[in-house]
Design a protein around this nucleic acid. Structure first.
Length: 648
RNA sequence: GCCGGUGUAGCUCAGCUGGUAGAGCACGUCAUUCGUAAUGAUGGGGUCGGGGGUUCGAGUCCCUUCACCGGCACCA
């Protein structure tokens, strides 16, 4: 029999018969390794212990110490164990797919009855039984007809479809966990007893379309999380609790920033505190835009259908628009208007007033554009995904030759803003031409090259997202990562060849002839609503001092200090600090607690001593420590801190 | 939009198998003037998300509708 040579991680090689399995290799090394082994890595591929190795290769035997392999196997085997448990309890359930996710797995089932949250406990108990049974896992490769027939006989139509979808030439692997069988690409553990029975948890039930397609049946997804040990699971559950505490919907209420109500779903009622954050951020953006060479405009909310037809929105975006019909007395038919879902068509109207020359370009037109989109009800989420919002929007009208320099300029503009707002790091995604598109290949070549080279010139290598560009042009998307690792796409920069054409924008070139400008759609924050939501969650409500809605509370310890409290508050207000007095007849403990819960960054406590010495006792949010400081000193210090980053 | 869940006082939540709504916090009043995360007493506050039905009787059961939550789909 032919021999092959396997090279171990330490560099040593040994020869084995061709077709040897990693299980046998582990066995040949030591009894204990063969027990502990969970899988192998063969030439970089994750390899089942039962799969034969047919040629010379590098090999490493994985154990639970190898985190990546261990987590993948634990989660993947748990998916199978769960599906088995579900079919054991409800035999009529049809199985579909059960992949590994970031922290666990899910399995989609087809069953007439819905799973209830109470069912989860039962499923979990059954899973633990299966783990305790230490059932062996085995695998075979079948041919397509046999696999298809097997699933057809078993009444598993989804599996039949999966068999059909496996590409020609790829092995069709059948797996057994004990006597329970599933189609699976593997790899899997040796036996169910290798699963940690105390390190997983079922998290919930939800709906999911088969293959993500709205037109296909809706399945029931049961999902879980799993780790290598109980501590890791606990850590993860803790993390979820922490994330829940940062939830902007909860903090929005606790900090009295905004509320939402049934009568205006997906729209924000900004309270004084929240509106302070909003306007502070907007003031900052307005200064940045002026500095960045933009002109600011403002355009109508309710616009006649004619414009949306011309721009193409009526055809492509209508179901997302709020339509407003107006019955006018002498008109033949109702006037049909729509609330603007985007600002671009209106900006072109301003551009089109008067003849533009190439000397006017690039023309950077910004608007804090208030838009309304009829988002599907299921998409709404706090102030992050809403139906009424304001974008920090701008359109740059320029020539094709200016795309590159304007892109570079925008990336610089956005970098500074993100850095000021506490996000020095961001990722860039570059979406290239889709199948269906407007504009010539030559134009696309130029635009894509311009975006790419401008991004690279900024020292950023974008991740390419092939074919995901808009039909009207390629785009860059800018994504922030927050303090707990979640990603938020905020900024965007899109080239548009189509809208200037549709809305007939033109300029007179140096040659005296008329030309089409290119439009660049761009935003940094995206929408104020969403960005403020991100800021709240990023900082867990403890916003940077300059953005904090209530910056300072001056709290009296005894009512004899009231006059001095008022004096301190007005000194701070005079210096541009948002300060308020708390002269209520309450103990200082009570006041400190209340304002700490309200995330006020600085509490100044004053009693007899402070009145006499003209000082204040400073307590910063989250610190136990207090510090006595002279009044004029703290006023100057807080005034400096309250200054927005761009004015320092 | 789809699947599932939830909706009781401003907030967080209790209210068993139907018998006519309750706590803590918040708010008002009074007392207390207090040194860094809840002082005490006392008072007011709910057509139980909306509509319809079953029933002698509905917060509780049924239907319907709206909103929210978790996913899926969507985010040209």
């Amino acid at each position: 029999m032919a021999e092959i040579s396997l090279t171990f991680p330490d560099g040593n090689s040994r020869s084995y018969p061709q077709g040897v399995t990693p299980a046998a290799v582990a066995e040949s090394i030591s009894k204990s390794l063969s027990k502990k082994a969970i899988s192998a890595t063969v030439d970089g591929a994750h390899w089942d212990l039962q799969w034969p190795i047919e040629g010379d290769a590098s090999i490493a035997i994985n154990t639970m110490q190898d985190e990546d392999a261990a987590l993948e196997l634990i989660r993947h085997d748990l998916a199978h164990v769960m599906a088995r448990a579900v079919q054991a309890i409800w035999p009529q359930t049809k199985v579909t797919i059960g992949p590994v996710t970031e922290y666990g797995w899910f399995y989609d089932f087809d069953r007439a009855e819905p799973f209830t949250p109470e069912d989860l406990g039962q499923i979990e108990a059954k899973m633990k039984e299966i783990i305790a049974a230490r059932d062996p896992v085995r695998t075979e490769i079948w041919d397509r007809d046999r696999a298809r027939q097997h699933y057809a006989d078993a009444g598993e139509p989804f599996k039949v479809e999966l068999v059909d979808r496996i590409p020609e030439g790829a092995p069709i692997r059948m797996y057994w966990h004990g006597d329970w069988q599933d189609l699976c690409r593997g790899p899997h553990l040796q036996h169910t007893g290798q699963l940690p029975a105390d390190a997983f948890k079922l998290m919930g039930v939800s709906g999911a379309y088969w293959f993500g397609d709205v037109n296909r049946p809706m399945l029931q997804r049961v999902s879980g999380v799993a780790f290598r040990n109980r501590d890791d699971l606990k850590k993860y559950l803790n993390f979820l609790e922490e994330a829940a505490k940062r939830d902007h919907r909860r903090l929005g209420r606790e900090m009295d920033l905004f509320h939402m109500q049934e009568e205006a779903p997906g729209q924000v009622f900004w309270h004084p505190n929240g509106w302070t954050v909003y306007t502070t951020l907007q003031d900052y953006m307005r200064r940045q835009q002026r500095r960045g060479g933009y002109v600011e405009v403002n355009t109508p909310q309710v616009v006649d259908r004619k414009l949306w037809v011309a721009s193409g929105h009526w055809e492509k975006y209508q179901e997302n628009m709020f339509i407003v019909e107006v019955d006018e007395e002498h008109a033949r038919e109702k006037a049909v208007n729509a609330l603007k879902p985007m600002n671009c068509p209106c900006h072109v109207q301003i551009y089109n007033q008067g003849m533009k020359s190439y000397r006017d370009l690039p023309l950077r037109m910004a608007e804090f554009g208030s838009c309304n989109r009829y988002e599907p009800s299921g998409a709404l989420h706090g102030i992050m995904r809403v139906r009424g919002f304001t974008q920090d929007d701008a359109h740059i009208f320029c020539t094709e030759a200016q795309i590159e320099s304007e892109t570079a300029r925008f990336i610089e503009f956005l970098s500074r803003i993100y850095s000021d707002l506490g996000f020095p790091e961001f990722e860039v995604l570059f979406s290239t031409r889709p199948e269906v598109r407007a504009g010539s290949d030559e134009t696309w070549d130029k635009a894509e090259a311009a975006l790419l080279s401008a991004t690279r010139a900024a020292g950023i290598e974008p991740r390419v997202n092939p074919g995901e560009g808009a039909f009207y042009g390629p785009k860059l998307e800018f994504t922030l990562t927050d303090a707990i690792g979640r990603k938020w796409q905020c900024g965007t920069h899109q080239v548009d060849f189509v809208l200037p054409e549709r809305l007939d924008a033109e300029y007179v070139g140096a040659d005296g002839a008329k030309h089409r400008p290119v439009m660049l759609h761009r935003a940094c924050l995206g929408s104020f609503e969403r960005f403020i939501g991100i800021l709240i969650e990023e900082h867990a409500g403890k916003l940077p001092f300059w953005l904090a809605p209530r910056q300072v509370v001056v709290a009296s310890i005894t009512s004899e200090a009231d006059d001095y409290v008022a004096e301190v508050v007005s000194a701070l207000a005079e210096a541009g600090v948002r300060a308020e007095a708390d002269m209520r007849n309450e103990k200082i403990n009570y006041k400190v607690r209340e304002h700490s819960v309200g995330k006020v960054p600085v509490i100044l406590a004053v009693g007899h001593r402070e009145v006499e010495e003209r000082t204040v006792t400073v307590r910063r949010l989250g610190e136990q420590r207090t510090e006595v400081t002279a009044l004029d000193q703290i006023v100057a210090a807080l005034a400096a801190e309250a200054t927005p980053p761009d004015l320092r």
